[in-house]
């Protein structure tokens, strides 16, 4: 089996200020489905094209932002071998019991030096809606809203991202697909465990634990245009786009959920193989790297986070 260890981003847990508004946004507008609501009020959502139980968890809180992101590993035994490697690297690892989130098995978790909690898990129940597997139609349930196909990746902001780079490469076996180097050091990294151009990315930022965006995969540039129509029709706050990233080459819109957490819809992007060299960007060209058509960063890119 070619793809072992960490498979993909499984789910992300975000804090929201107003739960009914958040659920409406993620289900009706982005096009996800609510799987269930937990006894503590957390709401679990998924895209109809995902098999596993959920990929987005919303927690009501009095601040917006990031709680954690969890990656799925290929084998149950991977949890033990990764735990050993993470502890050897020097990060304390804690354990979350199976069922702490409905449908999800035991998890291990730890804190990155950027101030972000990351977890690994192996088991996930499947839930409806999900793709059929025998003589399957392109979809079983007609896509709605922005027609999100899956939770794709997240971009996180915090300090010490050079340490995150070393950790993800040496301990979790990720590769660095692209990076931005400024005269005063490393600004940003795009990391992948798969053939996607990125599964997680980090931007250097003085405050730890900050959240830039969670991205949803769309089928096409046409669907990005359709998402833009929805953003205007429902007066959803837009950051930038439709445009394209030079980095990853993805077609994109950045916008905000009703609590101010940034979302992205993302289509395309190149296929990454683990033997591909890292693509690099410098200070002069970083604008084109982030927003290929505008060729400059907008004011919000480096300063607006939750």
């Amino acid at each position: 089996m070619a793809h072992t260890g960490v498979l993909r981003p499984g789910f992300i847990q975000l804090r929201v200020l107003d739960m009914p508004a958040a659920v409406e946004h993620y289900t009706k507008r982005i096009g996800l489905h609510q799987v269930t609501e937990g006894p503590d009020g957390r709401v679990y959502l998924k895209a109809a094209d995902e098999f596993d139980h959920h990929s987005i968890v919303l927690r009501r809180a009095d601040t917006a932002g990031y709680d954690l992101m969890a990656f799925k590993v290929r084998e149950e035994s991977d949890l033990d071998s990764f735990e050993k490697r993470i502890v050897e690297w020097g990060y304390p690892v804690d354990h979350v019991a199976a069922g702490e989130q409905p449908g999800i098995g035991r998890r291990i978790g730890w804190m990155l030096e950027s101030g972000h909690r990351i977890e690994l898990y192996h088991h996930a129940d499947q839930s409806e809606p999900k793709p059929r597997i025998h003589n399957p139609d392109v979809w079983d349930l007609e896509p709605h809203g922005m027609r999100a196909r899956r939770f794709d990746h997240a971009l996180l902001y915090g300090p010490n991202i050079q340490r995150n780079l070393e950790f993800f490469e040496k301990v979790l076996d990720f590769s660095c697909a692209e990076r931005v180097d400024m005269p005063d050091g490393l600004l940003a990294i795009w990391l992948t465990a798969s053939m996607k151009a990125h599964d997680i990315a980090f931007v250097n930022h003085p405050e730890p634990g900050k959240f830039h965006h969670a991205a949803f995969d769309l089928e096409s540039w046409m669907d990005v245009g359709h998402a833009a129509d929805i953003l205007t029709r429902y007066d959803i706050s837009v950051d930038i786009g439709p445009t394209r990233h030079g980095i990853t080459r993805g077609q994109t819109i950045y916008f905000f959920d009703p609590s101010g957490n940034r979302n992205e819809v993302f289509a395309g992007g190149y296929s990454y193989y683990p033997d591909n060299p890292t693509r690099t960007w410098d200070a002069e060209n970083v604008g084109k790297g982030i927003f290929y058509y505008e060729r400059q960063l907008n004011d919000a890119f480096l300063s607006v986070v939750t």
Binding site: A64, F256, S259, G260, R262, A300
Partner: peptide
């Protein structure tokens, strides 16, 4: 101007 939704 950021999120326009009371979060950032």
């Amino acid at each position: 101007v950021g999120c326009r939704r009371g979060g950032c």
